[in-house]
């Protein structure tokens, strides 16, 4: 990877002055990791009393966490292919989905707190 490599086309001039897209991708990955770690810890705590529920949570959550990461990186690739950011960026579906996931994690946390 050269320092000008912003998604496969090394011949193009730097398309990301200020590394805005890279910072945003890293913010996505940070958020995805917090989500993954938070839900895994919560799952581990639930496993103490309800192992089957916890197993189901892990099986449902891990693919979702991986999917968020993959979509975030693909977002980066698609956006960085746009010359000088003059083209529209990706829309609001992924933000909405991740916000919904956070609400779900909070709801599970509340159920855990009440039942514990």
């Amino acid at each position: 990877m050269s320092e000008h490599d912003t998604g496969g086309d090394g011949a193009r001039a730097p398309v990301d002055p200020g590394l805005q897209i890279e910072r945003t991708t890293l913010a996505w990955l940070r958020t995805g990791l917090s989500f993954a770690v938070g839900s895994l810890v919560l799952t581990r705590l639930i496993a103490h009393t309800r192992p089957l529920v916890a197993l189901g949570c892990v099986l449902a959550l891990l693919p979702v966490a991986v999917l968020v990461g993959v979509l975030a990186v693909r977002r980066y690739r698609a956006d960085s292919a746009l010359p000088q950011h003059r083209q529209p960026l990706t829309g609001g579906a992924l933000p909405a989905g991740v916000a919904l996931l956070a609400v779900l994690v909070g709801a599970v946390g509340m159920v855990y707190t009440v039942l514990l």
Partner: peptide, 22 residues
């Protein structure tokens, strides 16, 4: 696009804050 990206990062920072509270 820099404004849209900054808006997105702010949104993500709020989400991380929410998850820290949880």
């Amino acid at each position: 696009a820099r404004f849209s990206l900054a808006n997105e990062r702010t949104f993500l920072a709020w989400l991380r804050t929410a998850m820290a509270l949880m």
